[in-house]
């Protein structure tokens, strides 16, 4: 097991190297650089060139790449080109809202989706089943920002139940914290509910059709415990897999949701940085997101051993 984890962690290295190289080239080969923005409205062409030089952007590309990779290896993401803070500090400051948003979304989505999926599987072919499956397709089709604005219009502007925007740190009270997270979590979570409800339903149906389930039923195990204890446990593997795949979706969704609801998280940090060409921040955040993606997928693989004792590494 430990050997497997170590092997998997090592295999992350080439993946992250590809990410690093790709992101670096993407940024540095594109037109537009921070120097012109720093130089400002009244700057001359000479000013811009001088600032570019001062930022080290006139160095050959391979040299800039080596410098960046070298500091990356030492765990240093560099400093923002515009502020004096290191990128790691900036990311740390923005982490809470993003984690809170992703966490609440995932939590509620999984809870709701599994309930819906199990219900649909238990009543397969009925109106409830059809309704859940229809909801799933629709939920997957409406873009986050459309849902977001519909929710804002309804619950914040018309009914005035919930705030339009913003984020309150959890330290300022769980009440206000949740208050601000309700609408964004629903907007972002809808696609997950759809995705996970569908997979839950189909795997449940698969499991219910297995021999041992039939045996259990024949032995007179009550339907409800059977559904929850036996079937759901066996259906867990594919569900967890989907959650792992969903992380990529979630990261993308977070970026948009943070914009719609003005949540000062990492997504906003990187979108602002792109507009300003703050290379170290863009590079740092993409490395971070990619790392999270790879790690989550590792965790998903490891969770299989817990959920399904037949799987061993």
């Amino acid at each position: 097991m430990i050997a497997y984890i170590v092997r998997r962690l090592i295999s992350m290295l080439p993946v992250m190297a590809v990410v690093a190289l790709f992101v670096f080239l993407l940024l540095h080969l594109a037109p537009g650089d921070p120097a012109a923005i720093i130089a400002g409205d009244n700057a001359t062409v000479e000013n811009i060139a001088a600032i570019r030089k001062a930022l080290g952007l006139d160095e050959p590309l391979w040299k800039q790449l080596l410098v960046w990779v070298w500091s990356l290896i030492q765990g240093d993401l560099g400093k923002s080109m515009f502020w004096n803070e290191p990128v790691t500090t900036l990311i740390r400051q923005r982490m809470e809202p993003t984690i809170a948003l992703a966490g609440t979304t995932l939590f509620f989505a999984v809870a709701i989706a599994i309930t819906l999926g199990v219900t649909a599987a238990a009543r397969v072919g009925t109106g409830i089943d059809r309704f859940v499956m229809g909801l799933a397709v629709v939920g997957f089709s409406v873009p986050v920002f459309v849902t977001g604005y519909l929710l804002i219009f309804l619950f914040a502007i018309q009914l005035k139940w919930l705030p339009v925007q913003g984020y309150t740190p959890i330290a300022e009270g769980v009440g206000p914290w949740i208050h601000n997270l309700v609408l964004p979590s629903i907007a972002l979570g809808l696609a997950y509910v759809a995705l996970i409800a569908r997979i839950t339903r189909t795997t449940m149906l698969d499991v219910l059709a297995e021999d041992y389930m039939r045996t259990a039923r024949a032995k007179g195990v009550a339907p409800r415990p059977m559904l929850l204890k036996h079937a759901l446990k066996n259906a867990a593997v594919p569900i967890v897999t989907v959650i792992g795949i969903g992380v990529a979706l979630l990261i993308g969704g977070v970026v948009i949701t943070e914009t719609v609801f003005n949540i000062p998280g990492i997504g906003r940090l990187v979108v602002d940085a792109i507009a300003r060409r703050d290379y170290p921040i863009i590079q740092g955040v993409i490395m971070l997101f990619s790392g999270v993606y790879v790690l989550v997928n590792l965790l998903v693989d490891l969770s299989y051993t817990v959920l399904d004792p037949r799987i061993r590494y």
Partner: peptide, 22 residues
């Protein structure tokens, strides 16, 4: 309704936030 609770909470929560956030 929301305004009142939120603002109240904001003021009450400031000291806590200071110790956690900084």
């Amino acid at each position: 309704m929301f305004k009142i609770t939120r603002r109240g909470a904001l003021q009450g929560g400031l000291a806590v936030a200071a110790s956690v956030g900084a």
